[in-house]
Amino acid sequence: MNRRRWMVAGLVLLLAAGGLFHLSRQRCFSLILPSFCRVETAEKIVALSFDDGPTEAGVAATLPVLRAAGAKATYFVVGQEAERRPELLRLLLAEGMELGNHSWSHVRMAGVTPGLRPRRSTGPRP
């Protein structure tokens, strides 16, 4: 009987691990907050976004291409990077780009207690 319990426990653990892996690979998934992965529209549009900046290399590589195509994008910026490079934010805004918040420091939140999450994601209090 003991062997059977171990086999069942192992199978349950294997199925749970497989399910969690499958869930983590989903393109549109959020454990806590709602995610918007699609907006229904009759227009043929594409939304461009760039994450984890702004960096001089990233802006220098993307902005001329967007400018030449007459396209706009949303840059999801990391607060620490934005604080270091405010001139890049001003340039992006002057070019008609949108800015979004991509956390203060982009630290991994796995294992961080809920009480620390807001402070870690938004940066120090003013």
Rank of each mutant, 00 (worst) to 15 (best):
M1L: 15
Y75T: 01
L66R: 01
L66A: 02
A82Y: 02
G53S: 05
A9G: 04
R117K: 15
I45D: 14
M97L: 03
E81K: 13
M109V: 07
L13A: 15
R5G: 07
R67D: 12
L20M: 14
G100S: 06
L89D: 02
L93P: 02
A69P: 07
M1S: 14
T113I: 06
F50E: 02
T113A: 15
L20F: 13
H102P: 03
E95Y: 05
A9C: 10
A42G: 15
S105C: 09
R67L: 00
L88W: 00
G18Y: 06
I32G: 02
S49H: 08
R119K: 10
A9M: 13
P34M: 04
S103D: 05
N101Y: 10
P34T: 02
T62Y: 02
A17C: 11
S35A: 14
W104T: 00
G115K: 08
F76A: 03
I45L: 15
T113P: 11
N2V: 12
V78G: 03
L66V: 03
R117M: 14
L48S: 09
P118H: 09
T122N: 14
E98V: 02
R3T: 10
R27L: 14
F29I: 07
R90G: 00
R5Y: 11
K72D: 04
F29C: 03
G10E: 06
V12S: 11
V77H: 01
L89P: 01
S35Y: 06
L23C: 05
G10W: 06
E98K: 10
S24M: 09
A42M: 08
P124E: 15
H106A: 11
